[in-house]
Amino acid sequence: MLFTDDTDAALQAAVALVNSTDEPGDPLGSLEDLSAFLTAWSYTGRHDAGAEELASLRRLRPALRELLLAERDEAAEIVNHMLARARALPQLQRHDQWDWHLHAVEPDRPLDERVIVETAMAMVDVIRANEMTRLDRCAADDCDDVVLDLSRNRSRRYCSTTCGNREAVAAYRARQKA
C-alpha cells in the first residue's frame, strides 16, 4: 500500500471531482448527484443539500485541478495556503468504517471547505513521499482529465477505460491502415 486508505480515498474523490464537468451529463449536475457523490466517496459531516452547496463544490474544480497537477514545490505552497486559509487543525478521528485517520476541520464546516482540506491533507502525504508523478494528465489525445496512478508498477496512463480503449482502437486502426 502506497498511501493510507483515507489518503487514497481523498485523492480519488478529488480526481473524480476535477474530472467531472459542467457539460450535459455532469456527474454533479443535480442535488441527487451531489448526495450520491458524497456517499460514494464517504464524505461525512454537514451536508446542506442545497443549490449553493452544489455550486460551491463545483467551483472547487479549477483549484483542485491546479493542486493535483502542480509541480511538487508549487503543490506544497498551494497546500499550505489551503490549510492556513481553512485554519486547519489536524486531529485523529475514528468513525463509521474508518480506523484512526486525520481530519483537519470540524464536521459542521461547509462542504467545500472540508473537501479542500481533505484534499490538501492527502496531498501532504503525496508531497512528503515525493510521489507527485502519481498524478498526471490523461494520455488520450482528446482528453485533459486528471489521472491518479495508484498501481504498483506505475502503469496507469488514462483517466478511464473509455479513453484507454479509444486510444487502443485508434492505434489498431492506424496499424491496419499502414
Rank of each mutant, 00 (worst) to 15 (best):
M1L: 08
L2S: 11
F3K: 04
D6W: 02
A10G: 07
A10F: 05
A10K: 03
A10E: 10
L11C: 10
Q12I: 09
Q12N: 04
Q12C: 10
A13I: 07
A14N: 07
L17E: 00
N19W: 01
T21K: 07
E23N: 14
D26P: 03
D26C: 15
S30C: 09
L31Y: 04
L31T: 01
E32F: 15
L34C: 08
A36D: 12
L38N: 05
T39A: 11
T39V: 10
A40Y: 03
G45N: 07
H47S: 13
H47I: 07
G50Y: 02
E53S: 09
E53G: 13
L54K: 09
L54D: 13
A55P: 03
S56C: 07
R58V: 05
R58F: 11
L60Q: 07
R61T: 07
R61D: 03
P62K: 10
A63P: 06
L64I: 14
L64E: 06
L64S: 08
R65N: 06
R65W: 05
E66Y: 04
L68W: 05
L69V: 13
A70V: 06
R72T: 11
E74Y: 04
I78T: 05
I78H: 04
I78W: 06
V79Y: 08
M82H: 08
L83A: 09
R85N: 08
R85I: 01
R87S: 09
R87Q: 09
L89D: 08
Q93W: 14
R94C: 13
Q97T: 09
W98K: 02
W100K: 04
H101Y: 08
L102D: 00
A104D: 09
A104T: 11
V105N: 06
D108A: 14
D108Y: 12
D108C: 07
D108M: 12
L111C: 02
E113L: 10
I116W: 12
I116Y: 06
E118F: 10
A120I: 13
M121N: 13
A122C: 07
M123T: 04
V126I: 01
I127K: 00
R128Y: 05
R128F: 07
A129S: 15
N130T: 11
N130W: 03
E131L: 04
M132R: 10
M132V: 11
T133W: 05
L135M: 00
C138F: 06
C138A: 02
A139C: 11
D141I: 00
C143Y: 10
V146Q: 01
L150E: 02
L150S: 03
L150C: 03
L150D: 02
S151T: 15
N153C: 03
N153Q: 09
R157N: 05
Y158S: 00
C159I: 00
C159Q: 00
C159G: 00
S160W: 00
T162G: 08
N165I: 03
E167S: 04
A168C: 02
V169R: 14
A170Q: 09
A171Q: 01
R173I: 09
R173Y: 05
R173C: 08
Q176F: 08
K177I: 10
K177C: 01
